[in-house]
Simulated scan of single mutants.
Amino acid sequence: MLTADPTAAAGYRELRRAIRTEEPEQVLQRLRTMSVEVRLSIVDMIDRARMGHIGGDLSVTDILVTLFGAVLDVDPEQPTAPDRDRFILSKGHCAAALYSTLAHCGYFPASELATFMAPQSALNGHPNRRKVPGVETNTGPLGHGFPVAVGCALGARLRGDDSLTVVVLGDGEIQEGSNWEAAMAAGHYRLDRLYAVVDRNRLQQGARTEETVELDPLAAKWAAFGWEVREADGHDHAALLAAFAPSTSGRPVAVVARTVKGKGVSFIEDRVEWHHRVPDKQQVQAAIEELTR
């Protein structure tokens, strides 16, 4: 199993201290900078591996950065601390975004990102909790991560601790029925320390979500299952921070995060063919130039 990078972990702790003491605009600038760094790592990882899910990775980046940068109470050097907050990436095919975020927070050396999807690498195409610190459960088969998150939130209640559980789902993923069974259970138990975030980029493998199985009115559906629903721009760190405020209703919180698949790279944005597609060398250079402007 990979182990923490002490230098990066110290930098992460400094970031968390700064977030508690700095002015809001300074905090937001730190998060924006981290998002650029994570996106650049994603492009490099997928270029090296010549495979991946770049569109979804780029759409979920700002959500992950906001969570790990400013919301979750976690320690990269103690990834299994009993009282830690739990994060589950149910849309596990977007592992590159998660690995990049974890590495930038110090869970393991950033140099390991170069091994993404290589033979015998710990950084598989889908997250593996036995190999990567910070991964709470193996995900990849869609519809599995959310039920596990409900179990984590119930477990926290039984333990009597105040930890958060946050799960991120793809919008195409929630066409799976297991997600709505999980949503119904969480609403029934009023798991107010559970957050479900929908990466609402409106694209899935092969088509738009509404052409495949219509999801709207999505917010109303979550509310009908007993959730407090918030909608936010999934690329606005300030809006995301507000969306992760404590529940005001004693119910679990659903965050419908409006995102753009491929965010940050114009020729990838909102294009269905970039679910699996890998950029060529010229496109990689163009992506880097756009991200670093």
Rank of each mutant, 00 (worst) to 15 (best):
M1L: 15
M1D: 12
M1Q: 11
L2S: 01
A4G: 04
A4Y: 02
P6F: 07
P6V: 06
A10R: 07
E14H: 14
R16M: 07
R16S: 06
R17I: 08
I19E: 09
Q26C: 08
Q26G: 15
L31S: 00
T33P: 06
M34L: 15
R39F: 07
V43W: 00
D47H: 14
D47V: 10
R48C: 11
A49Y: 03
M51W: 06
G52D: 05
I54A: 04
G55W: 00
D57H: 10
D57K: 07
L58F: 04
V60T: 12
T61S: 10
V65H: 13
V65Y: 11
T66G: 12
T66E: 13
L67D: 00
L72K: 04
D73V: 09
V74T: 08
E77G: 01
E77Q: 13
T80C: 06
A81L: 09
A81Y: 12
P82L: 06
D85S: 06
R86C: 04
S90Y: 07
G92Y: 08
H93C: 09
C94M: 13
C94L: 11
A95D: 05
A96L: 02
L98P: 01
S100W: 02
T101R: 00
L102E: 05
F108L: 07
E112A: 12
L113F: 05
A114S: 09
N124P: 00
P127L: 02
P127F: 00
N128P: 10
N128L: 13
V132I: 13
G134E: 06
V135Q: 02
G140K: 04
L142I: 07
V148E: 09
G151F: 03
G155M: 10
A156I: 10
G160K: 09
D162I: 08
S163E: 14
L164K: 08
V168E: 01
G170A: 08
D171K: 02
I174S: 03
Q175L: 10
E176G: 00
N179Q: 13
A183H: 11
M184D: 07
G187S: 10
G187L: 05
H188F: 13
H188Q: 14
Y189L: 08
Y195L: 01
V198Y: 04
R200V: 00
R200L: 03
R200K: 05
L203Y: 01
Q205C: 15
G206T: 03
T209K: 11
T209C: 15
E210T: 14
T212S: 15
V213S: 13
L215V: 13
D216G: 10
P217V: 13
L218C: 11
A219M: 08
A220T: 15
W222R: 02
W222A: 05
W222T: 02
A223S: 15
A224E: 06
G226N: 07
E228D: 13
V229H: 11
R230F: 05
E231T: 12
H237Q: 11
H237K: 11
A239T: 08
A242T: 12
P246M: 13
T248I: 11
R251Y: 08
P252S: 12
V253C: 07
V255M: 08
A257L: 01
R258Y: 08
T259H: 02
G262S: 09
I268S: 03
I268E: 00
I268L: 11
I268A: 03
E273Q: 14
R277C: 12
R277K: 15
P279E: 11
K281S: 15
Q283W: 02
V284C: 09
Q285F: 09
A286V: 13
E289W: 05
L291K: 10
L291G: 08
R293E: 12
R293G: 14
